[in-house]
């Protein structure tokens, strides 16, 4: 279905970017303040859903040529994979570790393996939510 709503489209363009930025922020800040993989992923997904609602599906698909099913599968692989990663260091399955580094620009920064795990979670959430919405709405 074609929707021709200029105002909505213009607004959505800007809003989508704000939401996407928020999503990234929420994802990265999850360790120490509200946020995290789930929320980040959901917000990201909702930004995409907004785009799908405003523009038609084909257009968005051309703009973002990502197979969301594969994205979800990759995310699950990443989360499960980090679990096995800890086995390589002799730690029990899914042990996470963290350390503090002095990076040039960021100052004292905490780097954790949880972030990789959470990234997997976020990707699954994005992939699955978008897949669900897309498959239902495409099937007319």
């Amino acid at each position: 279905m074609k929707i021709n709503n200029v105002i909505l489209q213009t607004v959505a363009k800007i809003v989508a970017f704000i939401i996407l930025t928020l999503a990234v922020y929420l994802f990265l800040s999850g360790h120490n303040s509200p946020g995290g993989g789930f929320i980040g992923g959901l917000v990201l997904a909702s930004a995409l859903v907004l785009l799908f609602v405003v523009y038609d599906i084909e257009k968005v698909k051309n703009a973002i040529p990502v197979d969301f099913k594969k994205l979800a599968a990759f995310g699950a692989f990443l989360s499960v994979g980090t679990g096995f990663g800890s086995l390589l260091f002799g730690a029990p399955f899914l042990s996470q570790s963290f350390a503090y580094f002095d990076l040039p620009f960021f100052g004292k920064t905490e780097l954790t393996t949880v972030t990789i795990f959470e990234a997997g979670v976020a990707l699954v959430v994005v992939g699955v939510v978008v897949t669900i919405i897309l498959s239902i709405s495409e099937d007319v």
Partner: peptide, 13 residues
């Protein structure tokens, strides 16, 4: 919350 979302989506479909 996330699981129940998945369940709802699946049963709806």
């Amino acid at each position: 919350i996330v699981i129940s979302f998945a369940v709802t989506a699946l049963s709806l479909v």
